[in-house]
Design a protein around this nucleic acid. Sequence first.
DNA 1: ATTCGCAAAGTTTTT
DNA 2: CTTTGCGAAT
Length: 773
Amino acid sequence: MVAASASIRRILVMTTILDSTLTAAQRSAVEHIDGPLLILAGPGSGKTRVVTHRIAYLTQQGVSPRQIVALTFTNKAADEMRHRVESLVTRAGEFHLSTFHRFCSRLLRRYASLVGLGEHFTIYDTDDSARALRHTLEKAGISNTTFSPRQIASEISRAKNNLVEADRYEPPNGLPLGTVVAEIYPLYQQQLLSASAVDFDDLLLHVAVLLRENPELRKTLDEEFKYVLIDEYQDTNFAQYAILRALSQDHPNLAATGDPDQSIFGWRGANIENILRFEEDFPAVRVVRLEQNYRSTKSILRVADKLIVHNLNRKHKELFTDNPEGNPVELTCYVDQREEANAIARHIVEEIDSGRRRAQDFGIFYRINALSRTLELALREHGVPYQLVRGLEFFQRKEIKDIIAYLQLINNPSDDVAFLRTLNTPRRGIGKKTLQCLTRHSEEHGISLLESARSAGMIGQIAKRSAVRVATFVAIIDELSEKAAAPLEELMGLVMSNSGYHESLAHSDNEEDLERLANIEELLTLAREFDAQHPEAACLEVFLEEIALVGDTDDWEEETDRATLMTLHAAKGLEFPVVFLIAAEEGLLPHERSREDPDQIEEERRLLFVGITRAQQELKISIARRRDFRGQRRLTIPSQFLMELPRDELRMADSEGLGGYDGDEEPDAGAIARKVAKRHEAASGEAPPLTTAAELGKGQPIGGSRPIAETFSIDSESFHVGMPVAHPKYGLGKIAALSGPAQRRTATVNFVTAGVRKFRLHESPLRPVGRKP
DNA sequence: ATTCGCAAAGTTTTT
DNA sequence: CTTTGCGAAT
């Protein structure tokens, strides 16, 4: 009976797993069992499909699901993978399938004591960590450095990502920030340990150290997790790399999937070298390239490819597709962001009204969140339903964090950050002075703040009145702690009432307070759902871990029929039939902070690559001539990346009507797009859409006979490498290099159509296109 | 101890 | 234009 059903299942599995829809390359990855495997998967190449099928295949070949670990970076990716594995295998629940951080968190709970943590350690989010750091700075008496806690935190984070422990930290040469960090990092780490807390980076750091310093344990775990799969390998940092290697020594069955061209988290410590180096790390590796794209049209894919080949630090990859040619990619220039947003909204409305598309078919991407505003406004005005994907909204709200802090303190009484947060929230009249006494007392006796608070009455410097108030607070926490095992919703309700938090909000006629109350209601609902999912009691810690490791980026709903607005970073891993990519302008994409560093420019280029390759059928890139940003009106310069796109593949358009360009202004985005559009028209004999007849007559073809630089005299100082320039004869280009002294300053220019040429700057009609006002 | 007001700063953010 | 944090005033 059992055998029969097993063999039936086996047949079913066989047919679904190795069905004929797999290509040869995909199949070779799926059927790979032992030994290292590297899947270099281009965008839309069916990577997830391959990974899930391989998991199924492994079990079908007799590997126990318990020995398989599949790691992703996002919950969304983990959920999707789980979903898809479940449709292939029956025992899907037994796999270790989670995000990297969650996997580490579980491991760490098992072995917490080995790294000096309590079993009930708290996971701090970025905000909590910042508070811990600030508290540490205060205790150390170096609160008035030139560096912000944020800067310090990010340097500590960088160190942790690179597996540099507190006692081994050395300031990178000449970095003034480093000296401060060298001093504060050990104290901060000590603070975390004594509070029995970890920050996000610690989850990785501790596990990596654990594996490094306990060879026996490492061996055990290597054995336990025989088959490790890691998704988005290009985004791993050094700590993650170390963990993966430690788990793949005796059983080097590490399967990594990734795409170096989609590495966009370098600024968070991700090291693209990890994937580029994989073949050296595991010489016996089997490399599978998935280069066929099943997502995008040919024309979209060509544009993506032409862009990404400009990256120098890159493995060549051939992208191709059997999909139809599709419409040309559009590049439109608008007068300002208002018009850009309105045009997009209008277009979406038209498409929906005509029945060609649904709202959910549209994705709108931008480089920074601040750009979403105008879009939202326009979409609302046009009645387009939309959803805005923005990480960490709900759980970062003050009131939510307040309530959570109570729960954290109940779960882990050593948690000083939670103590600090709750002590005087709501207002209990406990002030700075009292707090200082408590802090000093806990330092002197090596005990937690809550422990100190218990003996507040005995501490001389604390006034009677204050001591009573502190005692009241301790009593509240103690009372709540007795209910720690109660269902979450109940516990949370008790927190609300006993702490006086509810009262402090309920009796307010302040609208904001009422909203806060509503948010807390939502949290209670969440708790109720959680209770339902975890009928066994004592799930407080699980809940806390859940909300620490789940951002609410997951509130993006695939199901609902709404257009989606998000940053380019958030768009990774998703796809939309129609993609709008706005504000392809210098300073925004690439972002101005990336300008100096060529590596960062390459990352920005990859970011655009990721955006482009999200599009299935249509891609519309846009710029605005003028953009109001931070309250300032600025003329824009089109992104240097636009120069790298294949001109003859793009449909250029300029939305501007009559009389917009008065000739007095510096040449700007509008002028350029118009000119390029005109040039394109001349080349193809086809008028670009959206361009008025009047407009066509006005544009100045760059490659035309009339010089356009006669009135410009520009000193050589105003040129720099990477700058877009125009030449009356050769058209648009980009400065590839500069050399020579002022008088003989020479620029090497890479022209879009005319190749590479050199010029003496003060003799040539070469000029910058557009300039900041 | 709390509150109010002004100054300064302001990417991206899987966890 | 925002938001956020710190410092002075009540």
